[in-house]
Design a binder for these strands. Structure first.
Length: 880
RNA sequence: GGGUGUGUAGCUCAGUGGUAUGAGCACUACGUUGACAUCGUAGGGGUCGCUGGUUCGAUCCCAGCCACACCCACCA
C-alpha cells in the first residue's frame, strides 16, 4: 500500500542503493545491441555538487536512462579530475593550519599527503551524484591520476613529442606569482579596474632638453625597456626614429624605433618597449631584434637588473615614480580605466614572464579537430556553438602545458648531463636510450614540471575506456555517442578533447556535443560564493526530492539558454510528483491491475480508447523530443499528459464507471487505468527515476525492472475517438464556465439543454451523458426539442454549432445577462470585421493558399451564425 | 575593438509566416464534489523592445536602432 503522502525521502536513497547493488547501471555488452556511451565531464576531486552539475548530470542521466530503455548497450562512464591547482591549493591550505608548507615536506611527501587527502576527503561529489540519481557505472570509476590514465598520458606525450608536436621554448607566459607557475591564457581572467596612467619623459641622447614623452600604467617595468617605439606615420614624432633615448635612473641608452604597434592616437604616441614583460612588446622586440631584459624574480619581486631588487611591483612602482619626480621627469598621473589579468584560482595579478616552458603545437592539432566538425562527424547541439568553436580553433595559440606545480602528471622528460632531452614512457626506457646515446651509463635528471590538468582530461573520452590497451570497452563504446557539457568549458575541455582524440585515435571522441547554458540565481545573476547567492542542490533535494530537482532542470532546459533556478518552480514539480502519487493511490484504492492477457487494441469503451490514444500521443511527443535533445518539450509533454489529461480528465471521467454497476466496463477501465499508469511510469522514468520506480514496484512489482523496461513504440491511434471525447470535454468546460459566470454554486444540480445540435453532437451527448452530468454537476442533459419554445428564463450560450440552454427559474439577472451577451456580440463583431477585411482584399483571396482562404471563410460563416444566435437570444430578453 | 545571444502576461520563460486555445508561479472569485488543499473549478492580465523593408499577411524572415547579457582580444 502506498503511503498517504508523497515523501521522497522514504525511498529515493533506498531505490538508488538497490539499483547499484543489482548492477543495473552496467552495460550488458551484448554485441547485437547498439552501443550508447556518455563520458561524464569529470568533476574536480575537490568538488561538491553545485547546480551546474545538477543540470549537466540530470541531462546525461535522462539520455542514459532513455537509451537504456530503448534496449541499447549503455555505458555512462564516471570519474573525477585531479584538478592540479585546485587540489594543491586545498591540501596546502590544510597544511598551513599546522604551519607547514609543501616545501617543508618535500615533493614526494607532499604528493603522498595529497593522495591521502584524496582517499579521505575527495570525491564527495560522487556520493552526491548518486543522490541525484545518476546511473553511472560506478564499478568503472576512473581518476585522471590513476595508473591506467597516467599511462595514457605518458604514451600520448611521448607520441606528441616524437612527432614534434610538443616542444620546449623560452617564451613569455602568464605567470602566477602565488603558485609560481605558468598558466594558460584560458586560466587568466580579466578584471575591470580603475588604475593610473603615468606620463613621464625620457631625455633624447645628445640633445639639449629634448624629450620623448611616454605614457604607461606600469612605470616600474621601465627597467626592462629596450626601445621606445613611434609610428612611422606619426608626423609629430617620426623625426625621432633612429635617435636614442636615455632611460632615466639607470641611464641606459635605448633606440627609438619605428613600429606600427605605436598608435599615434593612444597615449603620447610613443610607447616604451619592454619585450620581456609584455606580449605586444615581445612581438615588437622580435621584429627589431631587441634584447630581452628580465626584471622579475619568480615571485614577481624585482630582480638585480633593477635598482630595486627584492621589492614587489607596487612598492617598486612608487619608488620609480619618486625617482622620476626627483629627476623632474614626471609629468602627470591620471585615473585610467583598464583591465588587469588575474589568476583564475590564485586571484593575484598575472605578470608576463620569460621562462622555459613546454608547449603543444595546438595550431597544427586544431586542423583535424576543425575538419571533423566541418564535415559533421561531430555535431554541436545547438549548432550555433560550432561558430564559437571554429572561431577559437582557427585562431588558437600554442598551448602552454607545463606547470611548476607538484600535484599532477610529471612530464616524461629526462635530461642528460649536457641537457640533452630524452622523452620516453618510463625511466628505464629513457635510461636505456640515453645510455645508448652517450655510449656509457649516464645519470639522468627528470623534468620537475607537471602537466596542465586539461592535458589528461583531454584524453578522457578514450583513456577512461582503457586506451592504450585495445579493450572490449574501447572497441564497443568509442567514439562515444554524446557529450553533455556547459559552453563555459568549450575551449578548456571540448576543444582539447577534439584535438587529442583526433591526433591519437584518428576518430572523433563523440558524435554529438550537447551544450547547455549556465545555471543562475532567481534574478538571472551568475551564482557565486562571494555574492552569496548560491543554491545548494543537496538542500534542494533534501527539501523537495531529487525527482523534483531533476524535472525542473529538464523542464527548464531549452537549447542555448541559461537557467534561472526558481525554488517556487522546483516546489511546483514536487507538487507534480505528489499529483502522480495520488493518482496512483486512486488506482490502488480502486483495485486497478493489468491482466496478463490484456490487449490494448481490444479496448471497447470510448473513454478508455481515448486515454490510450492520448498516452500514445504523449509517448510520441516525449520520444521525438528526446531524440532531438529538446528536454523541455519532452518534460512538458509528460507533465501535460499526466496532470492535464490523465488526472484532470480521465480520472474524473471514470469515477462514475468505477462507482457504478457495469462490471464489464469497470473491469476494462481498471485494466486500462493500470496500462496508462504503467505507460506514464515508463515515459516519466528518465526524468523522475525514483517516484516512477517506487510506484512501479507497487503496481507491477519489483520483479520486472522499470529501469530496463522497454521503451514503447508509439502506436497509431483512432483520431475519431479522440475527437468525440474532446467534444465532451469542451462541452463540460463551456457549461462550467457558464455556471461560474452565473454564480451558481457547485452544489446546485442543473438541467441543461443543447439546442440545434447536429447528429454527431446529439450522439456524443447521449454517449457521454453520464460523464458530462457528473463533471459539470448536472441533473439532466438533453437535446432541446426543435419544436419546443425557449423560455425567457433560459440563459443561452453558443457552443460550436449549437446553443447551450440553461433554465434558471426566476433567478436570471436580465441586465447582467444582456451585458454578457452584448460583450460576446462585440467580440464577434470585431472578429467579423477582420474576416471581412481579409476576404475583401483581392490579393489575399488570390495569393494566399486556398486552405487558408477556406479557413477564413469558415470562420466568417461560423461567426455569422453565432452572431445570429446571440442576437436571437438578446431579442428574446429584450423586454426584461 | 571583434563576436554571440536575448528583449513575448506582474515574475521566470515556451512558441509560431496566417485570429497569441501560450506554460508555471503570482493575482481574483468560488469550492470540505468518495486520489490529491503539495488540491479543484472559473477568471483577469500581452499594441510579442523600437523603426523601416520583404509579403496578400510579420511577434516570427531581412536591415537599422535601442537595451541587457555573455565570450574573445586589449595593462601605452
Amino acid at each position: 500500500m502506498l503511503e498517504k503522502n508523497y515523501n521522497p525521502k522514504d525511498f529515493e536513497e533506498k531505490i538508488y542503493a538497490s539499483w547499484e547493488q543489482n548492477g543495473d547501471f552496467k552495460p550488458d555488452m551484448d554485441k547485437n545491441k547498439e552501443a550508447f556511451a556518455v563520458v561524464i565531464p569529470p568533476p574536480n576531486v575537490t568538488g561538491v555538487l553545485h547546480m551546474g552539475h545538477a543540470l549537466d548530470d540530470t541531462l546525461q542521466d535522462i539520455l542514459i536512462r532513455y537509451n537504456r530503455m530503448l534496449g541499447k548497450n549503455v555505458l555512462w562512464q564516471p570519474g573525477m579530475d585531479h584538478a592540479g591547482i585546485a587540489t594543491q591549493m586545498v591540501v596546502e591550505r590544510n597544511l598551513a593550519k599546522d604551519g607547514i608548507t609543501r616545501h617543508d615536506l618535500g615533493r614526494e611527501k607532499f604528493i603522498e599527503t595529497v593522495w591521502k587527502w584524496k582517499e579521505q576527503s575527495g570525491g564527495t561529489i560522487c556520493r552526491q551524484l548518486r543522490r541525484l540519481g545518476a546511473s553511472c557505472d560506478w564499478s568503472r570509476e576512473r581518476f585522471t591520476m590513476d595508473e591506467g590514465l597516467s599511462r595514457a598520458v605518458r604514451k600520448i606525450f611521448v607520441n606528441l613529442y616524437k612527432d614534434g608536436l610538443i616542444y620546449k621554448a623560452k617564451k613569455l607566459v602568464n605567470w602566477d606569482s602565488k603558485f609560481m607557475t605558468a598558466v594558460s591564457d584560458l586560466e587568466v581572467v580579466q578584471k575591470e579596474t580603475v588604475g593610473k596612467m603615468y606620463y613621464y619623459k625620457y631625455p633624447i641622447e645628445g640633445s639639449e632638453g629634448e624629450f620623448i614623452h611616454i605614457a604607461t600604467t606600469r612605470p616600474e617595468t621601465m627597467f626592462g625597456d629596450t626601445a621606445v617605439a613611434v609610428s612611422k606615420e606619426n608626423e609629430k614624432l617620426k623625426h625621432l626614429i633612429g635617435k636614442k633615448a636615455v632611460l632615466p635612473i639607470v641611464n641606459r641608452s635605448i633606440p627609438i624605433i619605428g613600429d606600427e604597434h605605436a598608435d599615434p592616437e593612444k597615449g603620447t604616441g610613443a610607447v616604451k618597449i619592454t619585450p620581456a614583460h609584455d606580449f605586444n612588446d615581445f612581438e615588437v622586440g622580435k621584429r627589431h631584434n631587441l634584447p630581452l631584459i628580465n626584471i622579475l624574480n619568480p615571485d614577481t619581486t624585482l630582480n638585480e637588473n633593477t635598482p630595486f631588487p627584492g621589492l614587489d611591483t607596487q612598492t617598486a612602482r612608487r619608488k620609480t615614480i619618486e625617482k622620476l619626480e626627483e629627476l623632474g621627469l614626471m609629468e602627470k598621473i591620471e585615473d585610467h580605466p583598464m583591465v588587469i589579468p588575474y589568476g583564475e584560482r590564485s586571484d593575484v595579478v598575472i605578470e608576463p614572464l620569460m621562462t622555459d616552458q613546454w608547449f603543444v603545437d595546438a595550431p597544427k592539432l586544431a586542423k583535424e579537430a576543425v575538419r571533423v566538425v566541418e564535415e559533421g562527424k561531430t555535431e554541436f547541439v545547438p549548432k550555433t556553438y560550432e561558430k564559437t568553436y571554429f572561431e577559437w580553433m582557427r585562431n588558437i595559440q600554442p598551448w602552454c602545458i607545463s606547470r611548476q606545480l607538484w600535484w599532477g602528471h610529471q612530464m616524461p622528460i629526462w635530461y642528460g648531463p649536457d641537457g640533452e632531452i630524452f622523452c620516453e614512457e618510463n625511466e628505464e626506457e629513457a635510461q636505456a636510450v640515453a645510455d645508448k646515446h652517450y655510449g656509457r651509463h649516464v645519470a639522468l635528471t627528470r623534468e620537475t614540471d607537471v602537466l596542465d590538468t586539461w592535458f589528461s582530461s583531454g584524453l578522457w573520452a578514450f583513456s577512461t575506456l582503457g586506451w592504450p590497451d585495445k579493450t572490449e570497452y574501447l572497441k564497443t563504446f568509442y567514439p562515444t555517442s554524446v557529450l553533455v557539457t556547459g559552453f563555459d568549458i568549450i575551449f578548456f575541455w571540448v576543444a582539447r578533447m577534439m584535438m587529442m582524440s583526433m591526433y591519437m585515435m584518428k576518430e572523433v571522441p563523440f558524435r554529438k556535443i550537447y551544450m547547455h547554458g549556465l545555471v543562475r540565481d532567481e534574478q538571472g545573476r551568475k551564482m557565486s560564493k562571494s555574492k552569496g547567492n548560491t543554491i545548494d542542490p543537496m538542500e534542494t533535494i533534501e527539501k523537495y526530492g531529487a525527482d523534483a530537482l531533476r524535472f525542473f532542470m529538464a523542464a527548464m532546459e531549452t537549447q542555448g539558454r541559461d537557467i534561472n533556478v526558481s525554488e517556487a518552480r522546483i516546489a511546483g514539480y514536487r507538487n507534480f510528483a505528489t499529483k502522480l502519487w495520488n493518482a496512483a493511490r486512486f488506482g490502488e484504492m480502486n483495485e486497478v491491475s493489468l491482466p496478463a492477457d490484456f490487449d490494448v487494441s481490444r479496448v471497447k469503451d470510448t473513454v478508455n480508447k481515448w486515454i490510450v490514444a492520448k498516452a500514445e500521443q504523449a509517448t510520441k511527443e516525449v520520444t521525438d523530443n528526446l531524440n532531438a535533445f529538446r528536454f523541455s518539450d519532452a518534460a512538458n509533454a509528460v507533465y501535460q499528459f499526466v496532470w492535464g489529461t490523465f488526472c484532470d480528465w480521465y480520472i474524473e471521467m471514470i469515477k462514475p464507471v468505477l462507482y457504478g454497476a457495469d462490471e464489464e466496463v469497470k473491469t476494462e477501465t481498471r485494466a486500462v487505468f493500470a496500462w496508462v499508469l504503467k505507460r506514464i511510469l515508463i515515459i516519466l522514468h528518465p526524468f523522475m527515476p525514483f517516484i516512477t520506480t517506487e510506484l512501479w514496484n507497487n503496481l507491477v512489482g519489483p520483479e520486472t525492472k522499470l529501469i530496463k523496461a522497454p521503451w514503447p513504440q508509439a502506436e497509431n491511434f483512432d483520431a475519431a475517438v479522440v475527437k468525440e471525447v474532446d467534444w465532451a470535454i469542451d462541452l463540460i468546460t463551456a457549461i462550467r464556465s457558464l455556471r461560474s459566470e452565473m454564480n451558481l454554486p457547485a452544489s446546485t444540480r442543473l438541467t441543461v439543454y443543447l439546442k440545434d445540435a447536429n447528429g454527431e453532437s446529439a450522439a456524443a451527448l447521449r454517449q457521454f451523458n453520464r460523464i458530462i452530468c457528473s463533471l459539470a454537476r448536472l441533473e439532466k442533459l438533453e437535446c432541446f426539442a426543435p419544436s419546443a419554445e425557449i423560455s425567457k428564463d433560459m440563459v443561452q450560450s453558443v457552443f460550436k454549432e449549437a446553443v447551450i440552454l440553461l433554465p434558471l427559474k426566476g433567478v436570471v439577472d436580465f441586465a447582467a445577462e444582456k451585458e454578457r451577451l452584448n460583450k460576446e456580440l462585440a467580440s464577434l463583431n470585431k472578429n467579423l470585421e477582420g474576416y471581412a477585411r481579409k476576404l475583401g482584399n483581392a490579393s489575399f483571396v488570390e495569393r494566399a493558399p486556398a486552405a487558408v482562404v477556406e479557413e477564413e471563410k469558415r470562420r466568417q460563416a461560423e461567426a455569422l451564425e453565432n452572431k445570429a444566435k446571440i442576437e436571437e437570444a438578446l431579442a428574446r430578453i429584450a423586454g426584461f
